[in-house]
Simulated scan of single mutants.
Amino acid sequence: MPTALITGASAGLGAEFARQLARRRGDLILVARSADALEALAAELRSEYGVAVEVLVADLSEEEGVSRVAERLRDTSDPVDLLVNNAGFGLPLQFADNDIDDEVRHLRVHVEAPMRLMHAALQSMRGRGGRIINVASVAGFISRSTYSACKAWLIGFSRWANAEYARDGVTVTALGPGFTHTSFHERMGLAVGQEGVPGLLWLDAPSVVRTGLRDAARGKPVSIPSLRYKVVVAVARVLPQSLTSAVARRGRV
């Protein structure tokens, strides 16, 4: 059966990817910083679906953590068929007021780590085939501090890589959800309802993941879950940047 490696797998979209792939009887490699959370999820998936689940504890803001995961991706004796780059966290939008070390760590997790893990995965996928899903955001289509800039890079690079490595049997898809009910906002200290975002704009994690997996299987370079966010992205492309930046100051996508 296909094997998937998922970063940021201990909660949120990462855990949902793990559950849906286990339901399809795929073996898993779960990556996150929290050993206890990973072991608990792994035990649940082994028991419920009978799949093999490997736990790999790693901090992707650290050189050693990224290197360990990259080494696993390059292992051709037990190859990975699907890489899901999902690890991430948010910061306040006020860049000048943020701690610069936090911003550098943010950049490493959202840009450097996915780039290096994609590079490692391609070493074993080219010619054999495989899929890469990079969890981005609709924030990547608008101007919204460093989070938006990181996600824009991920979307742009995924578009290029999807076209470049199609000849080698590898697809690369950037998944760009909007506001999604996960623990992402809670980790920033924001309770449900504090975002000031209408309920209509919220998505649920299972539908986001289903859409991402479906579009990756179809070889799409970018996957935008839900019609409402497809409209948001289309409108953002034609509106003045000053206007989209003002609107985007609300919430965390």
Rank of each mutant, 00 (worst) to 15 (best):
T7V: 02
R237D: 15
H181F: 09
A96T: 13
R167E: 13
S34H: 12
L107K: 00
G169V: 07
F157D: 05
L107Y: 14
V80W: 11
N98R: 07
A136L: 08
L91P: 02
S137R: 03
R187F: 10
R218K: 08
A161M: 15
G251I: 08
K151G: 09
L41Q: 06
S148A: 13
S223R: 05
A248P: 00
A152R: 05
L200T: 04
Q123Y: 14
A163E: 14
L200W: 15
V53P: 01
R23Q: 14
A149C: 07
M115R: 14
L154W: 02
G129H: 02
G50K: 12
I6S: 03
L201F: 11
P92T: 03
A32P: 01
P177S: 09
V57R: 09
M125Q: 05
R249D: 01
T171N: 15
L107N: 06
A9I: 03
P177Y: 08
L28Q: 06
A246T: 09
I133T: 04
L56S: 14
G193S: 07
D168L: 11
A9C: 09
T211A: 11
T3L: 07
D27Q: 10
A9Y: 07
S242W: 12
F184R: 01
V31A: 05
P79T: 09
T76F: 04
I224F: 08
L243N: 08
G199I: 10
G156R: 14
G219Y: 07
R126A: 10
R23A: 14
R25L: 09
V231P: 02
T146N: 08
R116G: 03
K220T: 13
S183A: 10
A120M: 01
V192K: 14
P114I: 15
L83D: 02
R210E: 15
S47Q: 12
D215Q: 10
T3D: 02
T171A: 13
L243A: 14
A18S: 03
E44L: 01
I224K: 03
A163H: 14
Y147V: 05
I142K: 13
L201W: 08
R25N: 11
L117H: 06
D81S: 06
D99P: 15
L41M: 02
L190Y: 10
G251Q: 07
I155A: 01
H106N: 00
L203A: 11
H119S: 12
A11F: 08
A9S: 06
S77N: 12
L73G: 06
D78T: 13
Q123A: 15
R72D: 04
Q20E: 15
